[in-house]
Simulated scan of single mutants.
Amino acid sequence: MDDIAGHLGISKKTIYQFYKDKKELVHLLMQKMVSDQQEEISQHEAGAKNAIEEIFAVIVCLQRLMQTINPVIFYDLQKYHPESWKLYQDFRDNFLTRRIKTNLERGISEGLYRKDLDLDIVAIMRINDLDTVFSTQVYSPARFDMGKVLSELTNHYLYGVVSLKGYKLINEYKNVYEED
């Protein structure tokens, strides 16, 4: 709270006029972050021409988010703010998992993804991949750029789910999105 007050140029007392305590502030910020991510991902999903473009658009969105988040925050949320951590878990387990499965269904119907995929298993694998991006024990921020890790994991994921038709599109979108 001292850091926040100092950054805003106000006293802690002023902060406490608006927020009961740090837990409330963290919880409201987490709600806002989750809501913003849901909205942005849904917009990318709606605007994408196909399932592969959707993946690339969402990854750009997540990479922007990663530039503003210290991965240690996930550890702090788990340890010190379990109610707020639950918001993230619900976002991950419900919204993100549902979006991944919807993308897989779309890709299969477009002929871009393999028809033999088990959607439940692949969605869980993808969620676990995304979780490891934020694991400082797996990908230390001192050694790895989180955006690069996300990009490599996404390449690995896409090459595992695409059909031959989808494979041809990956390089096209990689060129477009890497230029941005």
Rank of each mutant, 00 (worst) to 15 (best):
K115I: 08
L130E: 01
V34R: 04
K101W: 06
Q37M: 15
E54Q: 12
D131I: 04
I59V: 14
Y75C: 06
L112N: 10
P82S: 01
R143S: 08
K174G: 03
G166E: 04
T68C: 11
M30N: 05
Y157K: 05
Q89M: 09
Q78V: 01
I41N: 04
D90Q: 13
F56A: 09
K79Y: 13
V72H: 13
G160A: 10
K49R: 06
I124M: 07
Q43S: 14
N175T: 14
Y139D: 06
G107M: 07
T102Y: 05
I69D: 02
K115M: 13
S135A: 14
G111C: 05
I59L: 11
Q137S: 14
A57C: 07
C61S: 05
L29M: 15
L158H: 01
Y177V: 02
S11I: 04
L77A: 06
L104N: 00
V60F: 00
V149C: 06
K168C: 05
A51M: 07
K23A: 14
S135K: 10
K13C: 02
T136M: 15
D93N: 15
F95G: 05
F134P: 01
E39Q: 14
V34Y: 03
E54R: 09
K13A: 13
Y139F: 15
T14M: 09
N171R: 07
A142N: 13
